[in-house]
Amino acid sequence: MWERAEQIVHQGPDAVRPDDLPERVRQAVRRFGEDSGTTGFLLLRGLEVGELPPTHSDGEPATLPGHGTAGLAMIIAETLGTMIGYADEKNGDLVHNVQPLPGEETRIEGSGSVAFDFHIENVHHALRPDFIGLICLRQDHDKVAATRVSSVREAVERLKPSTLDVLRECQFYSNYPGSFTRDSTVEPAPAGPHPVLFGDAGKPLMRFNSHNTVSLSKAGRAALRALAEALEEVCHEVIMQPGDCALLDNHVAAHGRSAFTPRYDGQDRWLRRFYSIQSVPRSVLQMMGGSRVIPPIPAIQGIW
């Protein structure tokens, strides 16, 4: 499969074929894409990661142009749905390198190394990815950095009915994450108002970022705290090893990361992240012009 992944990374995700994953893995990924269950989480193990350069060189992160792990990401993303990127985030790249960067230790994003609390990806966006994938290339030195996963479908069992009612109210706002504002000199207005919980009561979905989602009401703030506590109580921690790929339903499973200590010696923790979505409105597809990059938010604000 590695040779095929190396071919695809040069040809792009449009070259992915249905049989590019081994049958057993392909069926597991497809079932997850159809129904992510109670946990909203699937862990694949034993993927090949190939030869790797140092994570950093003279403080500059490695970029891995043409590396086969991008092809693996494309195969998995296309099995789940359609691989996408965002024009506002990392220049529209389809595969993101998640590495600690010198001087950014306290940033609440992939370049940091402090604890990163529960969140879904791109909480502020009307077209949030349906799935995210994280491929581990290299562990942190101390092998303590855990990917923390928590399901809203497990967490709601610990919340009072009155709290659930508040979380379903359209009274919450979500600020843009740092990955969308890194090069901006103006702080965008938060998205909202929106509910934090939505969908069927028996299979709820979530729009929540513990760092960025806020409420102007006392009841709303109390409900957000209760949700964060419930997510903590049902958290599962996974210390990913090289060759692991964590798949998350971005509407069901919030995720985070425990703290770790980077050394900037070329052997620091390194993941690759990708997104998959199962449908894009026709109006947005027309603006995308055949690409896989969701246009900048100002260009698509008319859809919500």
Score class of each variant (00 low, 15 high):
Gly92Gln: 05
Gly92Thr: 06
Gly92Val: 10
Gly92Cys: 10
Leu94Ala: 07
Val95Trp: 05
His96Tyr: 13
Asn97Val: 00
Asn97Asp: 15
Asn97Leu: 00
Val98Ile: 15
Pro100Lys: 03
Pro100Ala: 11
Leu101Ile: 01
Leu101Phe: 04
Leu101Arg: 15
Leu101Tyr: 11
Pro102Ser: 05
Pro102Ala: 08
Pro102Tyr: 06
Pro102Glu: 13
Gly103Leu: 09
Glu104Thr: 09
Glu104Asp: 08
Glu104Ser: 13
Glu105Val: 12
Glu105Met: 08
Glu105Ser: 05
Glu105Asp: 10
Thr106Lys: 15
Ile108Cys: 10
Glu109Phe: 13
Glu109Cys: 13
Gly110Ile: 00
Gly110Tyr: 13
Gly110Lys: 02
Ser111Val: 00
Gly112Glu: 03
Ser113Arg: 01
Ser113His: 02
Ser113Tyr: 01
Val114Gln: 13
Ala115Leu: 04
Phe116Gln: 12
Phe116Ala: 01
Phe116Cys: 01
Asp117Met: 03
Asp117Phe: 11
Asp117Val: 08
Phe118Asn: 02
His119Phe: 06
His119Gly: 09
His119Ile: 04
His119Lys: 04
Ile120Met: 12
Ile120Cys: 11
Glu121Tyr: 05
Glu121Cys: 05
Glu121Val: 00
Glu121Phe: 04
Glu121Leu: 02
Asn122Ser: 12
Asn122Val: 09
Val123Ser: 15
Val123Met: 03
His124Ala: 07
His125Ala: 03
His125Asp: 13
His125Glu: 07
Ala126Arg: 14
Ala126Leu: 05
Ala126His: 12
Leu127Ile: 14
Arg128Asn: 02
Pro129Asn: 06
Asp130Phe: 00
Phe131His: 12
Phe131Tyr: 15
Ile132Gly: 14
Ile132Phe: 11
Ile132Glu: 07
Ile132Lys: 08
Gly133Asp: 02
Gly133Thr: 05
Gly133Ala: 10
Leu134Met: 14
Leu134Ala: 02
Ile135Glu: 11
Cys136Leu: 06
Leu137Glu: 02
Leu137Arg: 09
Leu137Cys: 10
Leu137Thr: 06
Arg138Ala: 01
Arg138Met: 03
Arg138Lys: 11
Gln139Asp: 08
Gln139Phe: 04
Gln139Lys: 13
Asp140Phe: 04
His141Asp: 05
